[in-house]
Every structure is written in C-alpha cells, then in structure tokens.
C-alpha cells in the first residue's frame, strides 16, 4: 500500500474519534487495576495488559507511526528490562531482613491503598514488564515484513 499521507493511515474518522475519547480511559483503568492489585482482583499482570492494550488500540486506529512515536521500540525494551530488574532488586532487598523476597516494608492497615508492604511495588514492576513485553510482541508482529522466499 506504501505511500499514504498521515491522515489516511489507520482506520476511518469514526474509529479515530472514538479511540481519541476512550484511549485515555483505558489507560486510566489499567493504572487503577494495577494500583489496587493488592486489595481487589487484578494486579500487575492484568494492569500491564490493559495499559499495553491502550497503546495497541492507538496503533490499530491511527497506524503504527503514531503509536510508535508515543512509545518507541527502544523505550519499550528499556521498560521491559527495568521492570525485571526492579522486581529482582526488591526481592534482593529482602536480604536486609535476612530472607530473599522478604516483605520488609511495614504492611500497614489491610484494605488501604498504601498497605501490603512490597506487593504494590512488585505489581508496578510486573506491569512494566508485562505491558512493555506485550506491546513489544505486538510491534514485532506488525513490523515483520514478508521477504520473498530465498532459494534453498
């Protein structure tokens, strides 16, 4: 299909308008699921998936250039590695209390947003890893080009 101007990329005006209205809500909902992971159903994985979906939504409606400008590939892979490293460092910090993965922050009052010690922080790390990973997989599938078959 090749050369299209920027306005023609992606889907129709109706889809683009709806996307513009909803994409922020989806992102916000993802952050909500993620930050309440320790007090209600959900958590880092589900939140990360929803956050990734908001960017994938953008890519479906507006085409890959717009979405990749918001979240370039390098940034995605950086976030993915950072998520893993944060998770591992928090687990290692447990050694300050004598055990790997020890919940060393005060647990607070149950059912409050700021409670449960290291679990919300681990949720954030997981969501970074899962969200960035899922988006990277989608980008890889979109950017893959079909080369003509070579001679064996």
């Amino acid at each position: 299909m090749g050369s299209k101007s920027k306005n023609e990329q992606g889907m129709t005006l109706i889809v683009k308008t709806i996307t513009r209205l909803t994409v922020g809500l989806i992102l916000l909902y993802g952050i909500y699921i993620l930050s309440h992971g320790h007090v209600s159903p959900g958590g880092g994985f589900a939140g990360g998936v929803i956050i990734a979906l908001s960017f994938i939504h953008l890519m479906l409606a507006y085409g890959k250039e717009v979405a990749l400008k918001r979240l370039p590939k390098g940034v995605t892979s950086f976030f993915e590695s950072m998520g893993a490293i944060i998770f591992l460092s928090i687990a290692l910090l447990g050694f300050t209390g004598g055990y790997f993965f020890l919940n060393f922050i005060s647990k607070g009052e149950p059912f409050r947003l700021f409670s449960a010690g290291i679990i919300p922080i681990l949720n954030i790390a997981i969501s970074l890893k899962v969200g960035a990973g899922l988006f990277a997989i989608f980008v890889a599938l979109v950017l893959l080009k079909l080369f003509p078959p070579e001679d064996d």
Partner: peptide
C-alpha cells in the same frame, strides 16, 4: 540479574 542487565 545478569540476563536483564545485559538486555538493558
């Protein structure tokens, strides 16, 4: 840790 530091 080695794996993710390398990837970073």
């Amino acid at each position: 840790g080695g794996a993710f530091i390398v990837s970073l």
